[in-house]
Design a protein around this nucleic acid. Structure first.
Lengths: 200, 200
DNA sequence: TACAAATTGGACTTGCTGGTCCAAAAATGG
DNA sequence: CCATTTTTGGACCAGCAAGTCCAATTTGTA
């Protein structure tokens, strides 16, 4: 159970190697033998470093990918303090998913992990962290007088997350970023509007 | 290849039975033996009515479920011609997904169908039909002077679809409809705003 | 009734895949 | 240099699930 430096290196090689190939190949059916081939390891190594078997391994890969999702949006996401920075962030998100195309490594992964608890926890954690960045950005802009202070930052940030998520989901089916761009434009346009009265 | 009335009845029984159970149970791993048990059929019947095997069967179930998604939103979706009707529609959507909880039968199905072409076609078709209803609703409201005629109906409808889709996706992870409600409120609020200038 | 076409039952095959196990090789540390 | 622990290789096992096949039964039709 205690790993040496060499052991940890192997473990990481497995996670990163699996992630890389899962990103490019069709992840519909990943087998442990696939992972073995990709990472040049043996069956015993797989179970040595991931006693929980396939499920634990895929969960680790999911965690790894979830972190990448946020990293790819930095440094923009952490400093949404001007309209220009919001634009750069939007550009980065759309560029990322356009490059990724119809493949969403994380979504594919999630569908394969049965450990409902673990999988949904990874997803929820990612969404929460993501949303918190956006909420922080909205609050900052409100403090600067750029956004109507009446706006519910928390709820609007939630809408952003849902919108982006939906744009990506549609992208996965259609291979087109049009929906993602449409919702993103609408959301930022909403933010810039001077008033946010909710009609009755 | 030619089916009699009895044959068609059996075929439908298989599709509907599978759909029903897929909606309630965990659809992570559906086997043909499961379907057999649910529908009281034999292996030969499954392959008799779905020569393409499991994949064809699941694709038919997916089509069936896709139709239900739209049906569940009627009659509201087809007559978005007043703010009251938009509210009723929103209520119906949220009620549907709240009742469904974290389970999205369609999404689960899609993840199991490898026939990428067929699966994404079912999804894309659903999204297109859905979006067209919304676009029609926006256009109608514009004609009545309730929505700014400058608004791009097509693009805004696309944003609606993405937003709803994202709310549902988040719901699947968190089990909470908060995001869906947040984005839906934001979208309708956007529609009701008198002006839709896009800031530069 | 008789014949053809369809429907149905279910045993059987086949291949794959997660997981186990043991022994060998390499580190580690005193 | 020896003992102990970690790391690695890969053969092997067991179960499952998709798909095949043939025969029995029912249905439709003349």
């Amino acid at each position: 159970m205690t790993f040496t430096a060499k052991g940890l290196a192997t473990r990481n090689r497995i996670i990163e190697g699996a992630a890389t190939h899962l990103r490019s190949d069709e992840p519909g059916t990943v087998t442990l033998d696939d992972v073995r081939a990709w990472t040049g390891t043996s069956k015993s190594q797989l179970f040595h470093y991931f006693p929980g078997g396939k499920e634990e391994l895929l969960l680790e890969v999911a965690r790894y990918e979830a972190d990448r999702v946020l990293e790819d949006q930095q440094p923009h996401l952490a400093a949404l303090d001007s309209w220009a920075s919001w634009d750069r962030w939007q550009g980065a998100v759309i560029a990322r998913y356009r490059a990724q195309g119809a493949r969403c490594p994380l979504a594919s992964l999630m569908s394969q992990v049965d450990s409902v608890a673990g999988a949904s926890q990874v997803a929820t954690s990612l969404l929460n962290r993501w949303q918190e960045y956006v909420r922080q950005g909205i609050t900052t802009m409100q403090a600067q007088g750029d956004i109507d202070p009446e706006l519910n930052a928390q709820r609007t940030a939630a809408a952003f997350i849902a919108g982006i998520q939906g744009g990506v989901t549609v992208l996965r089916s259609t291979g087109d970023t049009a929906h993602l761009e449409a919702i993103f434009d609408l959301l930022t346009s909403y933010l810039r509007a001077p008033e946010h009265k909710r009609a009755a």
